[in-house]
């Protein structure tokens, strides 16, 4: 099982954009905790909604990070025997696996979208701040769809190495 080291990717600007977005969100997660703890001790005023904002940021980091994982091909895989297969069949194995992975991601994206619709249907919100939850679920669906697209595109391309 191994993670391939990052390779210089043709999708440089996309990576940079994803990097900045994820960076800002992670920093916000950290900041929320610090402000909440300091507020609690120094001013007896914890940050209302710190918990639920952290939860939303967590979902965003996971799903926005996903296309980046697909882009850099960093999903964890078992390469116990695949490395020992004859070189001639490797391109086929790779293409079939990427197609299959793309299909699984696409199905997950579709189901996330449906679940988002369900949440929107009953107006699900967060606990204290009453922020709507459905947009977060739609975002998760779109990001997973993006990862599926990236994976399909990779299946069409010849291997980089």
């Amino acid at each position: 099982m191994s993670r391939a080291p990052s390779l210089p990717s043709p999708a440089g600007p996309a990576r940079a954009a994803l990097g900045v977005i994820c960076g800002v969100m992670l920093f916000a997660m950290m900041g929320l905790t610090v402000v909440d703890v300091i507020g609690r001790y120094l001013f007896s005023a914890p940050l209302t909604g710190a918990t639920e904002l952290t939860e939303i940021l967590l979902a965003c980091v996971i799903f926005i990070g996903l296309p980046a994982v697909s882009l850099d091909d960093e999903h964890v895989t078992v390469d116990l025997i695949t490395g020992k297969l004859p070189a001639a069949i490797q391109p086929f194995r790779r293409a079939i696996l990427l197609l299959a992975s793309g299909v699984v991601l696409a199905v997950i994206a579709w189901r996330l979208w449906a679940h988002a619709g369900q949440i929107a249907g009953y107006g699900g919100t967060t606990n204290s701040l009453r922020l709507p939850v459905a947009p977060v679920a739609y975002l998760c669906a779109i990001c997973t769809g993006l990862a599926a697209g990236i994976t399909f595109a990779a299946a069409m391309r010849p291997p980089r190495d």
Partner: peptide, 26 residues
């Protein structure tokens, strides 16, 4: 089963306790 797939991937992504993972990684 397909509904459960969507629910599992989204409902568990907003687990406050799990927010420690990215923060410890960070």
């Amino acid at each position: 089963s397909l509904s459960l797939l969507g629910q599992t991937f989204f409902d568990n992504s907003r687990n406050y306790s799990l927010s420690v993972l990215p923060l410890f990684l960070m």
